[in-house]
Each structure stands twice: as structure tokens, then as C-alpha cells.
Write a protein that binds this DNA or RNA. Structure first.
Lengths: 310, 310
DNA sequence: CCGGTTTACGGCAAACGTAAGGATG
DNA sequence: CATCCTTACGTTTGCCGTAAACCGG
């Protein structure tokens, strides 16, 4: 079982040309080399494939049968190779992205718009989820790339920081704190607080930041999604702290945004992927372009808090 | 476009083993050679097919897609090779034989019985036809092998003599000639004669043989098939000359068989095939075994004429 | 450190091209 | 005799194996 694709290609070429010399030219070979290829193929198969005579070359019965298979094999292979190369050229492919829900709106979708325009063949699947589920989605290989808040390094996952985002206070407009231009960390603890669920990295960062200052929040409600937090604040159920970035999510009435005092707490937005699983060409491209996109739009993404607005 | 089947086999093996070292062993290669094969394949395709790490090898997304194609290609090829080899081993194949009608009965069918018992996989197609149509069937490539009477060599066709057969006279039992132990050529011309059609090689041989002696037949009837000649003689419509062999065809009543005088006329039974078209393995085998069969059964085929019988 | 893959390099076999030979129309 | 395929032979290419490096757990 030592037959080669060269032999197959040689045979198909000769069968199509009905001439060794002509086929040899097409294959960029000498007739002698071609003759060898056919001879070897025939001896591999044990059957004569071609009747050669001075004035004609004809495919035998056994040759006709084999010719069909050879053609199909070569064609299937060509298609497979072409597919792989198109994949490499981003003509098709798939990227599955698991993104924190707010970032899906503020970062991912605007980026995807550009990405899809440039690479319409690549299918992008977005899964918007709570922050705490992103790494699970990666580990379960349901997503190629995750987008969320930095968590302490895990050996399985590589993170790439995209940008940093200031945390701001969300205060109901009638709330006493709304009258201040900025809110200190200690003031937060004095009022009923609407927190993200404890699993959220943002919540963890906030808790750690406050704990370092000996402050403990007075948590009235916990929600998984920032949108719910907005609704709660909007209805004066308490105050909250969210990344400034999330203001782009929705325009809820009755919420005042105030900067938080020192020490500043920043939220690090990262892209994640599995360390041991190489990104597909499309995913690799997506990741690279996302980083470039963030660099180009850093100013918009790291929105300064203007206390006058909202 | 320089990828090889070795690369494909290597990739499939590694994908199945999830280990280079193990796959290398299966392929009778060193891990180093295998590594090269995979590397070259990947660079041909432009995509990474495998994620290699110290403790595991995993197929990438692009690799999974290509793996399917690679498997199918290799399998199709294996099947095609197997088919060809089975053909070479006479496990299957086809032989189309065009035979003169009498020889189909007296020679071909008895031989086929032995042949089919030995090679049940080979499909034998018999076309029984008038002698004069055998070469046409070959030239039209409707038959691989022809069996009939020798005709002067044609450049396109190769003939192999199988056996020689004496011509005998067929005389109605009440006919005056039936009283003689043998019939001379000149006596033939004196009675109404039932001849084969002028296209038949037997007729041509007979005419030439007689012409050389200055004898011309008194042709009363012409028939394409010996069976019709038998019927005409049996009904006392005339006398005839046929190969002795054809007596095995049918046992018509009222016919006396008589040897013909000197110079002896023999009919040469040949196998024909196209010179420029090689026989398929099955046809080649059929031809060879047919020659051996004839040698083994020469005595039966060249039936001596016993004037006492019939 | 150990298991496993990759890189570097030398040797060898397989494949190619050149040139002569053979067959055929 | 001209053409086309095949054979013979010398050369080169490329592939494999050995050994060392490298990487990750």
C-alpha cells in the first residue's frame, strides 16, 4: 500500500490527454518520469490501467473503474484543502464569544459591526451571560473567547487586558447623596446598597476594595445583571456602584451618576481564552482586531464621569 | 499543492491516538518524522490541525473539519485499491464472449461450467452469433473475446488457434450418397447443396477449397446458422458440409454423416481478441484457461467421423 | 527531572532527467 | 522513418532516523 497522490494525478492526466507526452508537460514532468509513475501505480493495483501504443493511449476497463475513484479522491481532497485555506484566509470560520452582558452592548456589538463588514464569511456567535459564567463557558468549550472582568489568573485561561473602566456611583435623583458632586467610599456604606451577586468579579473587586478600608456594605438587594441594578436604583430602592461604561447600556430616568473618591477602583476588562486550545484562525483574527479596536476607541470606552449629566 | 497521502495517514493516526509517539509506532515511524509530516501538512493547509502539549494532543476545530475529509479520502482510496486488486485476483470482473452459435454449445458452455465453478465472482456474458458477426462484435468492443473460425489475419485482431475440426458431409438417409462410406468433393457438386451464407468463414473456406479443384457447388439453399442446415438436410432438401463438431449440437433424425475425401479440409477454430486492447484480468484468465481446456479435451472436440453412426 | 514533541543534521533510497532503445503505424 | 513510450543510468532531492534541545507539568 504505497501508492501516492502523484501517481493518481499522473493517471488522471494521462487518461484525460490520451498521451503521455502531453500529460507529462501538464504535470511538469518528463515522459520518462510519468511512465514510471503509471507503471508503479499499475503494479500497486495489480491491473493494467492503460493500453499504450505508438499512436494512442487508451484506458482499460479496470482503468475506467479506477479512474472514477481517483478523480473523486482528488476532487474531495482539493475541496478539503480549499476549505482549510479559506478558513486560513478568514473566508469562513466561526467564532463563539461569551461576553458579560453589559460589555456585549457597549463593546462587543459595536466591534462586531466592523468585524462582520470586513469578514462577512466568518460566523460570530455571541452568548451574553453573567460575568461569573464566562470562564465556565470557556472551560466547557462553548466559547472560543470570553469578554469580562479580570479575575485572579487561572492556569487554564489566558487573559488579555482590553481597557480599564472607572467605577461610579448610581444614586436615585431624590437621594441625599445625589446632592454631592462626588461620593466617598465610606458614604456608600451608610445607605441601602444594591449589589451584584457575590459571584460577580465586579462585586468581588468592590468588596475587596472596601474591606481594605474597613468598610462593609449595607446590601439591600442583589442582582445578577446590571440592567436590574439600574431598574432598582431608578426606582429609588437604594444606591449602587457600577462601571462607568455601563451607562451606555440604557438611559434610565431618575439616576444620578457620581464619581467615587480615592482610592480609585478600576475595573479591568479582559478577553479570555483557553491556554491549551489554540484559537481558530477566525477566532485569532477576532481577538487581534478586538484589541486593535479597543485601542482605537479607548476614549469612548473609558467614559469620564460628568456629574452634571444624568 | 504538494500534500501527500502519508501526511493524511499521519494526521488521522495522531488524531486517533492523541499521541505522537503512539501514532508514530503504528505508522512504523519515529516521532520526529511524524512531527515533520504533520508540520508540513499544516503549512500546506495554512491552518493548525493539532494542539500539542506535553500531556496531550488535541484536534483543533479546523483539524476536526479536515479530519473528516481526510478519513473519507483515505477510505475511498482503500476501496478503489481493493477493488482493483480483487479484479486482479479474479474475485470479480467481467468477460464478454462472442461465439459462433455451434461453438457456444459444443465448446463454450461446457468450458464456462468449469470456469464459473472455479471463479464464481467473474461475470461471463455470452453472445452467440453467426460466425460472420464475431469480429464486428470485437471491433465494436461489445465483446472481449470472440470464438469462431479462422479468417485471414486482420491487423486489428489477434487469433489463437484452439483446435482443428474435420468437415463432414451431411446426407439425408434416403439420399443415394448415403450409401457410400465416404463422399468425394466432386460428388458434392452433383446434388442440390445447402450452404451457409456467403459471409460465413466456413462457407468461404469450402468455396475456396472446391474452387482450387475446379468444382462449383450447386447451391439450393443458404442458411446463416448450422441448426437451419441440419433441419434442411433432415427434411431431405439437399446435402451439406459442416464441421464434424457440430454434430454435438443436435440430434436430428434422418441424417447420415460421411467423411469427405482428399484433399482434407479442416476448419480452424480460433479465439480472437483485439490486438490493441489488452484483455482485462478476467478475460485474460478466461482466454488462458480456454486454451488449456481445449488441450485437455482435444479428443472430444475433434470428433472422428464414424460412418456407421447417425 | 521526566515524558513527550520539536529541531538539527547526516545518510540513504526514491524519483527525476538525460539519453539510448524499441515498437508501431 | 518518424513518433511516442520505455528502459538504463547517473544525479539530485527529500525523507527518515539519531541525537540533542526544548517545553510543560
Amino acid at each position: 500500500m504505497n501508492l501516492t497522490l502523484r501517481q493518481l494525478r499522473a493517471f488522471v492526466a494521462v487518461a484525460e490527454c490520451s498521451r503521455f507526452a502531453l500529460a507529462a508537460e501538464q504535470l511538469h514532468l518528463t515522459p520518462s518520469a510519468l511512465s514510471m509513475l503509471i507503471k508503479d501505480l499499475e503494479s500497486e493495483l495489480g491491473v493494467k490501467l492503460l493500453d499504450r501504443h505508438t499512436r494512442m493511449v487508451r484506458v482499460t476497463e479496470a482503468g475506467r473503474e479506477f479512474l472514477g475513484s481517483a478523480r473523486r479522491v482528488l476532487q474531495d481532497l482539493d475541496i478539503a484543502v480549499l476549505n482549510s485555506r479559506e478558513r486560513a484566509a478568514y473566508k469562513h470560520g466561526k467564532v463563539a464569544v461569551a461576553s458579560a452582558s453589559v460589555l456585549a452592548v457597549t463593546l462587543l456589538v459595536p466591534f462586531m459591526r466592523e468585524f462582520q463588514a470586513a469578514y462577512p464569511g466568518v460566523r460570530v456567535e455571541v452568548r451574553d451571560t453573567a460575568e461569573e459564567n464566562i470562564k465556565d463557558a470557556l472551560l466547557a468549550e462553548e466559547a472560543d473567547i470570553g469578554i469580562g472582568t479580570y479575575e485572579e489568573a487561572q492556569s487554564e485561561i489566558t487573559e488579555t487586558e482590553l481597557f480599564r473602566d472607572t467605577l461610579v456611583a448610581l444614586i436615585p435623583e431624590q437621594h441625599p447623596l445625589a446632592r454631592k458632586r462626588s461620593v466617598s467610599w465610606s458614604e456608600l456604606a451608610q445607605w441601602p446598597f444594591i449589589a451584584l451577586s457575590p459571584g460577580s468579579p465586579i462585586r468581588r473587586d468592590l468588596d475587596a476594595h472596601l474591606a481594605a478600608q474597613g468598610i462593609r456594605l449595607n446590601v439591600a438587594y442583589e442582582a445578577s445583571f446590571p440592567s436590574t441594578v439600574f431598574a432598582l436604583v431608578s426606582n429609588a430602592m437604594g444606591i449602587a456602584v457600577l462601571p462607568a461604561n455601563s451607562r451606555q447600556l440604557m438611559n434610565m430616568p431618575g439616576i444620578a451618576y457620581r464619581p467615587l473618591g480615592k482610592p480609585k477602583l478600576m475595573r479591568r476588562v479582559c478577553a479570555f481564552h483557553l491556554k491549551h486550545r489554540s484559537l481558530s484562525p477566525a477566532a485569532e483574527l477576532f481577538h487581534r482586531l478586538l484589541v486593535e479596536y479597543v485601542e482605537a476607541h479607548r476614549s469612548r470606552l473609558t467614559v469620564p464621569v460628568d456629574p452634571a449629566s444624568g
